[in-house]
């Protein structure tokens, strides 16, 4: 096959079967790749995940979710800053953490719809990505490999947090006892 024919064939093939990926989707895939929960996923698996992720824009002061409401999605901060706060009646909300790009929050919502334990408020104009429990459940049904990798990472993250909490509890008890 001549070079020109090869080029035409290749362009035809690419046009039908390997169309150029949308740069925005590529970008979403890149951000997802940096999140520890999705670190085990391959490039193709990240592409599949990016297809079901919802992108949202929040203005400064807008809530991603409110304490006490049922959790349905985990959020990943793509740009901006999100404060995790416990609202107080007197208006002096208690800020627990400030999360920047690449951080994730509300991951327990991937397991069940128990009420959120704190609120998440955009501290500045923020771009976030939401990953829904229903989508994860569907992924487990259709693409068990991706689903099991995500669940395994989620279990590791929760395990680490439990370990850290136990250590904190142990050290505070040790301090109390002398």
């Amino acid at each position: 096959m001549s070079q020109s024919k090869k080029q035409v064939f290749s362009a035809f093939w690419d046009n039908i079967f390997q169309a150029e990926e949308d740069p925005r989707k590529k970008d979403v895939r890149a951000v997802l790749g940096q999140v520890p929960m999705f670190s085990e996923l391959s490039r193709n698996e990240l592409r599949k995940l990016a297809a079901i992720i919802h992108e949202r824009r929040y203005s400064q002061g807008e809530a991603l979710f409110a304490m006490g409401t049922p959790g349905a999605a985990m959020f990943i901060v793509r740009a901006g800053l999100v404060n995790i706060v416990i609202p107080k009646d007197d208006g002096n909300d208690l800020t627990l953490a400030a999360l920047g790009p690449g951080s994730f929050l509300g991951e327990l919502a991937l397991l069940d719809d128990s009420p959120r334990s704190a609120s998440a408020i955009a501290a500045e104009d923020t771009m976030a990505m939401a990953f829904f429990r229903s989508d994860l459940n569907r992924l487990i049904e259709t693409d068990a490999q991706i689903g099991s990798k995500i669940l395994k990472s989620l279990a590791l993250i929760i395990g680490k947090r439990l370990k850290a909490t136990n250590e904190q509890l142990f050290s505070s008890n040790a301090k109390k006892n002398g």
């Binding site: 297809a51 919802h54 949202r56 809530a63 409401t69 719809d113 989508d135």
Partner: peptide
Amino acid sequence: DEGEIKKNLVYLVPNRYFEMVLTVLD
């Protein structure tokens, strides 16, 4: 369709109702 139609529809929903609308849809 791998969820693009739903994503585009949900994109129009205000942030306040976003989680709720998706839960209702499901």
